[in-house]
Design a protein around this nucleic acid. Sequence first.
DNA 1: CTCCATTTCCAAAGCGCTTTGAATGAAAAA
DNA 2: TTTTTCATTCAAAGCGCTTTGGAAATGGAG
Lengths: 401, 401
Amino acid sequence: MEMPPISLLASKFEIALNDARRRKQEPLFKAACVPYGRRTGRARCSALPTSVGHAVPGANAAMRLKDLAEHLGLSQTTVSRALNGYPEVNEATRLRVAETAARLGYRPNASALRLATGRSGAVGLVLRGADELGPHMSEFLAGMGGRMGTEEVDIIVTTVDSYAEEVAAYRRIAASQKVDAIVLHSPALRDERAEMLLDLKIPFVLHGRTNIGKPVAWLDIDNTGAVERATSHLLDLGHRRIVLLNGLKGRTFAEHREIGYLAALSARGVPFDPALMGNSVFTDEVAFRLAQAMLELRPRPTAFLAGSMMTALGVFRAIRQAGLELGRDVSMIAHDDVFPYLNADNMYPTMSTTRSSIRQAGMRIGELILQLLAGKPAADIHELWPVELVLRESSGPASER
Amino acid sequence: MEMPPISLLASKFEIALNDARRRKQEPLFKAACVPYGRRTGRARCSALPTSVGHAVPGANAAMRLKDLAEHLGLSQTTVSRALNGYPEVNEATRLRVAETAARLGYRPNASALRLATGRSGAVGLVLRGADELGPHMSEFLAGMGGRMGTEEVDIIVTTVDSYAEEVAAYRRIAASQKVDAIVLHSPALRDERAEMLLDLKIPFVLHGRTNIGKPVAWLDIDNTGAVERATSHLLDLGHRRIVLLNGLKGRTFAEHREIGYLAALSARGVPFDPALMGNSVFTDEVAFRLAQAMLELRPRPTAFLAGSMMTALGVFRAIRQAGLELGRDVSMIAHDDVFPYLNADNMYPTMSTTRSSIRQAGMRIGELILQLLAGKPAADIHELWPVELVLRESSGPASER
DNA sequence: CTCCATTTCCAAAGCGCTTTGAATGAAAAA
DNA sequence: TTTTTCATTCAAAGCGCTTTGGAAATGGAG
C-alpha cells in the first residue's frame, strides 16, 4: 500500500527485507532474543600507535588477539602459543609477548576461548532458592569460590523454584554445554538427579552421599558418627529422653544422622521414642515450635540434638520460654557448620556442638572438581570427613527432678 | 640421542613436532592450560534414524544446529531463524522445527551463541568471600537468581580475598568479556570501583548509592529515613541514651544511617555521645562485645539500634548477660533484612525492626539489570525503597531508674 | 658447501552459532 | 503472458580463539 521512502543507495528490496527482519516473534530460546547488545560495528584498534605508552585508559573496544599480534608484528598463532606456554616459541619472543599483553591488559575473549577449546571454564551450582540458598550455601560458596577463583574457573549459580525446574535446569545446562562440571547438593538416599547427570555424562561432585549403584565422586561429613557420639555423650551424662531435631526425611544426611542416633540408643538399651524426633528444615521458627511441643511431653525430654545453629536458636528460645535453663535443666548439642557471624563459643551459655566447617568442605569440593576435570576417575574421589564433638556449657548432666 | 619409535604412517618430523608440542610450560592465562577436555573427536549424529523415537537417553555428544538442520532437511539458517522467532520462516516449518528441537532436546551451544552474538548472557557478582558472602548475600542471590533465571541469564559469582583482588577481578572480567553487566555491592561514599566500571564501559547496577558525579544505575533502601524514624520513636518513648551499632565506617549505608541517627537526635535537642556509636561488621560476636562494653557505661544506655539481625543476637546476649531484660530494662530496634530462617516475629521477646527484604531487592536489581541491558539509560535507573518500621515487644518506654 | 634436524614462526582450518545477501518459486499485478 | 512482489529458503561470511600442518630460517654434521 504505502511506498517506503527509498534511499538513494539501498534498493527497495533491501529495505523491505530489513524491515521484515526486524519484526521478530517470540523465540524458542529466550536468551537468544533479548534485544541488547547486537553485534556492534567494532572499531578496529589498528590505529594504535606503534610506540606504546600506557594502556589507554579510555580505550573502549576490548583488544583482540589479532590486534595484539599486529601490534607485535607477529602472527596470531605465535602470540597465542607464547601466551599459552607452548614450547615452540623463542623465549625472548615469549617474554616480549607476555610483557606487551600485560601492559595492554589483553585478555582472551572468554566465549571465543570456550568455543575453540570446548571447555567452558565454569562449574555449575543449581539451587532451590527457597530452602537451599541459606546461610549454609553462602558459606559453601565462599569456600568453593576461594578455590575456583585461583584457577580462573567461574561459578555459575542458577536458582530454581521446584524439583521439576531443577531437573530441567540440569538438562538445559548439559545441552547448552555451559559448564564443565556441576556440584550436586543435598542428595536423597537414592538421588535421581545424580543418575541423570551420570546419564548426561556431565562430570559432577556430590556434596553428601547417595546410593545409586554407580560410582560417583563425593565428599561428605560423617553425620552418623557425629550424632552417634553426641547421643552417646548425652546418654553418658544420664539423659534418657533425647530429642533429635533432624533434617527432612529422605535426605541422606538426615537418614545418616538418624542411624547414628538409633545406634547410640540401642547400644545403651534405651528405647527409641518416635515422639522425640522431628524432621524439618533448619529454621529457628520451626525448631522453636517443635521444641516447644516436645518440652510439653511428660516425662519431659532433658536433652536436644539440634540439626543446625539456626535450629539451636529456636530450641534455645523454647527452653527459655518454658522457664528452663539451658545447660542445667536441659542440655543441647547442636550441629555447627561454622558460620563466621554466629559463633557457638560466643553464645550464652556457650554451645556444645558437633562441628564441621562447610566453608572448608566447599573449598575441598572445588579442589575435587578440578581433579575430576583433570581426569581423575570419579570412583577414586570419595572423602568422608570426621566431625568434631566440642563440649561447652550447653550440655551437662541430666538434672534430677 | 635416542631415536623415537617411528610409526609406519607418520614421518619422524611429525613425531618430533608433536612431541615437542606436548611439552607445555606455564601459560600466562591459567584457564587456557588446564589439561581437561581437549577437543574431542566428536562423533557426528548423522546416523540418527529419520523416524525419531524418544530423545535417545544414552546420547553422549550434544547435538549441533547442523545436525538438527540435516535431520530436518533444512539449512542451518532456516532452523536458526525458526528457533529465534524471525518472521521470514513459514509457520508450518517453524512448528516442525520447534517441535523437533524440543523432542530432541536441542539447545544451542552457549559459547558459540555468545561468540556469535557478542552477548555473554551472564551477569557478574564479585564478592569478598570473607565478609561479603554472608547471609545477606545468599538472600540477595536468591532474589536475583529468581529474576535472572526466567530470562536464562546466568549469574557468575567470583570470590576475592581483598580489595586489590576485587579490582583486578573487574578488570579481568571486563577484558575477557565474560559478562554483559555487573552488580556492584556495598559501595563507599565515593566508590572507586564504580568509577572504574564506568571507565571500563561495562554496564552495572549498584546496590546502594555512591557519589561520583556521574550517572549510575542504583537501587538502595532509605537507610537514613529508617534510622531516623527508629531513633525518633525511641526518643518518643523517653530514651535519651541510644546506642547505634552501625556498619563499617565509609560504607554509604553506614554513613546514611548515621545521618538519620544524628538528625533524629538533633531534632529533639538530644546531644550526640560518640561513645554510643559502634562501627563494625555485622556478626553476633562483635555486637556482643560492643554491647557489653556499652552496657557498662554510666549512665547506662537504655536502647539499642542494631544494624542487622546478627547484631541483634549479640546485643540480646549482652543484655541478658548483664542481668537485664530486653523490652523492659533495655529496648532494641534491629534492622531486619528478612531472613527466612531467622524471624523477628518469632524471637522472644519479639523484635522491633526496620524491615526491608534484601531478597526482594535482589529480585528487583535483576530486573533493573535487564532493563539496563535493554537500553534504558543508567541515569534513569534510580530506586530508593522506603523501609518499614515494625514495632514489637523489644522496644518499650525507657525504664525509670 | 651441502644436507638434514631444529627452532621459530605462520596461514588457514575449524569450534557452533548468527547474520548477510541473495536465490528460488509462487502469487499478484500488469 | 510477462513482470513485480512476496514469502521462503539457503550458502557463505564472520565472531575471536586454538590447533594443524607446514614453511622459513638457523645451526651442526658430514
